[in-house]
Design a protein around this nucleic acid. Structure first.
Lengths: 202, 202, 202, 202
DNA sequence: CATGAATGAGGGTTCATTCAT
DNA sequence: TATGAATGAACCCTCATTCAT
């Protein structure tokens, strides 16, 4: 009841919550959201099933929250990254390096997010800080600054994202090995070249 | 009920199977494999639940079969496409045009396959005719013919696939509109440029 | 698949459904709706839990349906009973006799309905054929025909219902024994006397 | 949190208990015992869930205690009421007026007790001071004093109780409006007339 | 051979109760 | 002593699968 117990209970809260979230992400990454039961998560986290419901109203909310947070945080970091850079090339390089490092640091989070997009992206609020929005912002600026030709912002953004994400996917499936961040420079070159090529007059 | 069963018995086996598969793909595309029940498929196909088990041992096998067939067929068509073409550029153009047409013709099949990869690709036999294998073949030939620089076949293949698939994904989510096949030429240019850029010496 | 099998499956349907409903009523009567689990009902009916869901979307719907049907049927029978009778006294006698016989024939149904009113009456549509409505109709006619004095139809109806239902409740709790229908005449006299007394000038 | 616990420790034991009981009754009245969780009660009472277990061993005991207390107290008051009166008529009038006032003063308590009877009456000890016992005592005295004819004490008591309780129920459901105590005299007349009519020779 | 009612093994969720703080 | 996070036993419900007809 003193500050001490107050602190303790707060620590426990984060402990349990963090353990649950870590377990959820790791399991979701491997088996997909629907392939993981609350019992699985609780067992992996070393907590009871009921404990999960103190922090999340439902399994659905847990998945949405995890995805949403990771998605938003990725976007925010991406934006911060980009704002330090000048010009399209620097922006793309920074973003792609960021993605690659993210993957290298927490592949499970990536393995969770990639498939989860398909079902959760439509649910998550299309925030200003969504990774897609950040990428599209960079592309838009580049078009306005005549750094690249092109009318369709989405098409260019898709190209950039596709190059990185599919590479990550190949890595997950073992078709590519090694640290992804080592490939970041060449991926960036590819993305920039592709972006320019998209807008070329035939 | 009896009229119904009468109709059923007049159906060709393939008819029933086709209806079931078509219904399954359409439903899987929209709600995902786990989001669709056998009852849903049977209802949409106008057949009984039990009938499905005459053709497939389980729902899992149905999904695997549908994915596998589509995957294999796409790969086969892709290979046929490619064999008619000479050189890397022509090959990539043909493949990308093929993907785009496939999407335009049967978006549902795409919407089914794209997310399904994540859980079914590891299960499906890594055939010679898998789309990935075909793309990698084209890339390998190009490298051998010195059309592009690059040591990592997978990296180039990932780039090419990523550009097309993410563009399709953007189309599914409404970020891109119009016929995808109209964008095929520019996507091909982007893919070729990206492939070349990947191998550039810095 | 012939008419025979069609007939058979229909018979099974009613069999299972009836068994489930009978078990549900009997259990609800003794332990209350919330005190009975789907597992209890299934076990008592000798069917699987899942089987229940072919006929009812939820336990709630099962309870509502059972109550609603019994309630409506009681009302309908009551109305039929009453329409054969002339005047207030005959009407009340008929209704009370009907209630008593109902109780004697299926005490469990009564034991289910009496407590269930408290939670389900507000949910059930206030039909023209609700027992309350029928009783109120008889009362209203009596007032219009100057057979009884009284301005408040509800008050008189409450009195009549209260006399019968509380008597049934006493019987359930063992405070009264024997066939209730034997007591119907005296209950009717009491109800009629009470109805008249309600409207007397002080 | 600390302010809160500070406040709590200043509370008198009875204060906490009273708040909990008041909250419990109010919630039970509206949603029924099974429809209310310990968390609901604790929240409404402004106490912790655990605190409830200092006063009651279980939720069941809480409900039983509340019902039992109210039941016993009502019976005791009823007995006190009756002992001041002479004769059957005066006794019934006093009892019914008491019931009506009780309802007017604390409708929630009534709304709690009425449905709760069905599950808790069999559990509560059949005390001498139970309302039913008091009513039956008055009836027994009246029979012995030849104020009413009748052999079955229970039947008469059921009639009297039924008239009052069902009227209260109608009031709860909105079929009757206004203060119930204003209707007490006419309800008493009805109860007395019904009691007499029960014993009449046909 | 098709049917669809029945099964039963889980899955998600709630909640009375406990207990470390 | 009060707290409320944690527990875990049920509970309701879904749905892939089976099988008598």
């Amino acid at each position: 009841m003193s500050e001490y117990s107050f602190t303790m209970s707060l620590m426990r809260v984060t402990e349990v919550k963090e353990k649950a979230e870590r377990a959820a992400i790791d399991l979701f990454a491997v088996r997909g959201i629907d392939g993981v039961s609350i019992a699985d998560i609780a067992a992996a986290a070393g907590i009871s099933q009921g404990a999960l419901y103190r922090y999340y109203r439902s399994k659905d909310e847990l998945a949405r929250h995890l995805f949403g947070e990771a998605y938003k945080q990725t976007g925010t970091q991406l934006r911060a990254m980009v704002e330090h850079e000048q010009g399209f090339e620097a922006g793309v390089k920074a973003m792609i390096m960021h993605f690659c490092r993210l993957y290298d640091q927490d592949a499970a989070l990536f393995r969770f997010m990639l498939p989860a997009q398909h079902e959760l992206l439509p649910v998550v609020t299309d925030d200003q800080n969504a990774p897609v929005a950040v990428i599209e912002g960079v592309v838009r600026d580049a078009i306005n600054a005549d750094e690249i030709n092109g009318t369709d912002v989405g098409a260019v953004a898709a190209t950039i994202m596709g190059i990185v994400l599919q590479t990550a996917l190949f890595h997950i499936y073992g078709r590519i090995t090694g640290q992804l961040s080592e490939q970041a420079p060449s991926l960036a070159r590819a993305a920039i070249a592709a972006s320019r090529a998209l807008g070329e007059v035939r």
